[in-house]
Amino acid sequence: MSFNNLDTLYRQVIMDHYKNPRNKGSLEGDILTVDMNNPTCGDRIQLQLQVEDGIVKDAKFQGEGCSISMASASMMTQAIKGKKIEDAMKMSTMFSQMMLGEEVDEEGIDLGDIQALQGVSKFPARIKCATLSWKAMEKGVNEG
C-alpha cells in the first residue's frame, strides 16, 4: 500500500473514532475516575476505569476536544478493556514512544487502530492532544 493510501486510511480511522466514539459514557460502582485537560488546546477528558483483580474490566470516557484527542480516547479505551493493568501500561509506554517518533517493538501487543495516530508525531503541537487519555489512564492506575 502506498504512503498516500495508508495516510488516507489512517485519517479515515481517526475520523471514524471521532465521529463514532467507542466507550463514551460513564460507569457505575467501584471505579477509578480521572479528570484531565490540555489547556493549550482546550481538550478535556474524564476517564473512568473499572479494575478487578488487576484487569481492566471496563473503560469509559467523557469529554470534549479535537478529533485527535477524542479519537485517541476512543481507541485507548477499546484497546485496554480486558487487558491486565501491566499490559495497559506497556501499551501506554509504546504509545508515548510512537508519539516521540521512536521505533516501537510491539512485544506481542497489538496496537490495532492506535497505529493510525502515529502520524501525529510529525506535529508536536498535537502530541499532547493524542496522549491526554493515556496520561489520564496512567494517573488513574498509579494513584488508584
Rank of each mutant, 00 (worst) to 15 (best):
S2N: 15
S2G: 05
S2H: 14
D7F: 12
T8K: 15
L9W: 09
Y10W: 09
Y10Q: 07
R11C: 06
Q12N: 13
I14N: 04
M15H: 04
D16F: 01
H17P: 11
N20K: 09
P21G: 03
R22L: 11
K24C: 07
G25S: 13
L27C: 14
L27G: 11
D30S: 14
L32K: 14
V34Q: 13
D35L: 07
D35Y: 10
D35N: 14
M36V: 10
P39R: 02
P39E: 06
T40Q: 14
G42T: 05
D43Q: 00
I45H: 01
Q46G: 02
Q46Y: 04
Q48S: 11
Q48T: 05
Q50T: 12
V51P: 00
V51F: 11
E52L: 07
E52Q: 15
D53V: 10
D53M: 09
D53F: 12
V56Q: 07
K57W: 01
D58R: 03
D58I: 05
K60P: 13
F61E: 09
Q62T: 14
Q62V: 06
G63P: 03
G65S: 08
C66D: 12
S69H: 00
A71E: 00
A71G: 01
A73N: 12
A73Q: 15
S74R: 01
M76F: 07
M76L: 15
T77V: 10
T77N: 09
A79Y: 02
A79D: 01
A79F: 05
K81P: 03
G82E: 15
G82P: 15
I85D: 08
I85C: 05
E86N: 02
D87S: 04
D87I: 13
D87N: 14
A88P: 10
A88T: 08
M94C: 05
M94P: 00
S96R: 13
Q97T: 02
M98E: 03
M99N: 01
E102T: 02
E103N: 08
E103Y: 07
V104S: 05
E107M: 07
G108V: 06
G112M: 11
G112V: 04
D113C: 03
A116E: 02
A116K: 03
Q118I: 02
G119V: 02
V120D: 04
V120H: 06
S121T: 01
S121A: 15
F123R: 03
P124R: 13
P124M: 03
P124E: 15
A125I: 15
A125R: 13
A125E: 07
A125N: 11
I127S: 09
I127T: 06
I127F: 10
I127N: 13
K128G: 01
K128Y: 06
A130V: 10
T131C: 11
L132N: 14
L132W: 04
K135I: 05
K135N: 12
A136Y: 01
K139F: 07
N142L: 07
E143W: 01
G144I: 02
